[in-house]
Write a protein that binds this DNA or RNA. Sequence first.
RNA 1: GCUAAUGUAGCUCAGUGGUAGAGCGCAUCCUUGGUAAGGAUGAGGUCGCGGGUUCAACUCCCGCCAUCAGCUCCA
Length: 653
Amino acid sequence: MIKITFPDNSVREYESGVTPLQVAESISNRLAQEILVASIKRAADEDFVITELNQPLTEDCAIRLHKWDDAEAKHAFWHTSSHLMAEALQELYPGIQFGIGPAIENGFYYDVYPAEGQVIKDSDFPAIEQKMMELRAKKEQLQKTYITKADALKQFGDKGQHYKCELINDLEDGTISTYTQGAFTDLCRGPHLVSTEPIKAVKILSCAAAYWRGDETRPMMTRIYGISFPKKSQLDEYLTLLEEAKKRDHRKIGKELELFMFSEMVGKGLPIWLPKGTALRLRLEDFLKKIQKRYGYQQVITPHIGSKNLYITSGHWDHYGKDSFQPITTPEEGEVYLLKPMNCPHHCAIYKNTPHSYKDLPFRCAEFGTVYRYEQSGELHGLTRVRSFTQDDAHIFCRQDQVKQEFIRVMEIIEIIFRALNFENFEAQISLRDPNNRTKYVGSDEVWEKAEKAIIEACEEKGLPARVEYGEAAFYGPKLDFMVKDALGRRWQLGTIQVDYNLPERFDLEYVGEDNQKHRPVMIHRAPFGSMERFVAVLIEHTAGKFPLWLTPDQAVVLPISEKSNEYAWKVKEMLEAQDVRVLVDDRNEKLGRKIRDNELKRIPYMLIVGEKEAEQGLLSVRQQGAEEKGQMTIQQFADFVNDTVKKQMSAY
RNA sequence: GCUAAUGUAGCUCAGUGGUAGAGCGCAUCCUUGGUAAGGAUGAGGUCGCGGGUUCAACUCCCGCCAUCAGCUCCA
């Protein structure tokens, strides 16, 4: 008999050799049907190890039974799905060779090399899905077999699986296993589902080329992506989510709402802000400027280029010189300049411009600084990956003992912003030094330890959930990055706060201390939005273009019912604008229903319907975007309503 | 950068080796309307750019440019 401990710490006894599936059956049939994989921890194990449901248990252990909701179950489910897809591909494309086929964050893929003359295209996906479902219906069991290296090489060599042989060659004899279901055998470590039967819904999503083992000198494989679920309804839900994400694509909405554009003529990766997008961005900038003013920042403006020597001093030339836009030179004197890839060197120059006393610190200078970075053409993507963008940058020069307080103050700013923009869900990542290799960092152990401690304590004090990542710090200092979850649950990295010991050293920055001696200030880089481009992109996808009232380019549109009311409509606009409400008039020669529809699609928050009745009494019929009628108001009531709502939305500040 | 796909009217897209089409938008006119598409007429295109094949190229071939996806998740 062996003792098995459950997650609730209860212990039960079982015959030695019992399988996790039997353990589940002993609890309930329902559980046995739902679990996909288990993990166990024996006395000798440091942590839980995922195991298959048919793996006999022969010693005392703790067990966890994983249903679909657990990441472990999804991983095994998708891994087995990739085998099922491979089995289907083997039938449909005789002679196909297989590379690797792992589970990924959302689904799975398999890298394959079709036989001479065969190509797998999008149009083949339904056939692959159908074949997978056919094979699944056979309820094939996955059989794990340990095999010697020599046998494995022979077995896969005989089948012409050259890529598999290459993988086997890299493995240590005695650790090699295969999984077989039906006529398909794959080199694999597992773990897997015990059967392909639970894979009830599958969708092949895309195929694209991928280098064998990520190496561009090696052959190009066809990578086929898919996703699968235990229930059809889950697949439908997932596909709906994908569609919703597509609808929210900021590139599409940005075009529809005329927020920004790109032009081949201007150059790729160079976003151009159109009037409506600019209005929105300026409102964001003004909002942040106002907060920053309260938090003791001073706004500065610096040129878009800087002398090459500036970047030699900062170290950026050494680090990024080759991967930047190349230097600009003057025609006569041969002076050399670089487009600025960062604002910090300019800000260091500002700091150096005047002597500083310890009493003056922190010195905080902020700039919406546009920077230019060379990105490989294949990396460019909408507003999220561009070659010119504006950082809501600021640099705080402070004493070491002020670091924690400054972090807390920056975190407050970030919180205000996230709240004002309805990012309810956010978390932080603390990036610290690699504990095993401290040589790659600049600055003394002492200051690093202080700074790392300051960041951790700042998070604790603010009650901010933070994940600590070792080895993720920049070479010049530890950092704190902010991740938000958008309305579809997608995670985006936005703001960042970074401590820097490097630049103060390189620029020989100093302040005079209480002791009348010179000291080195600490520098903190921070950008709550990150970049205006990226932030607006995320905001568009988060809100689907329905921006909060305070931010939206146009807050209301007046819809005259007929030409007879046009004059009143324009008067309404004028009166509302006098009270800072942003209003359009739709006086096209169209029926009301049409105007409502068109303006709904423009995502304007309020429609003000005015006809003869309203004109007589100085009223508006207010309709909220999303079909909600709010009844009639006077012009003044509506202006107050908008201004109160905006004030409320901004009340975080 | 690499690999594949795509590039036709302002937008979304159809189409053919014999010099182009739809819907929406736009303009004009009719209609003067009450909460998600009223009607008619019309304008609008060097079919991404440059070469080549051909009697003839938007179509086929080559090169370039741009867009999009993947190239990061490791049997």
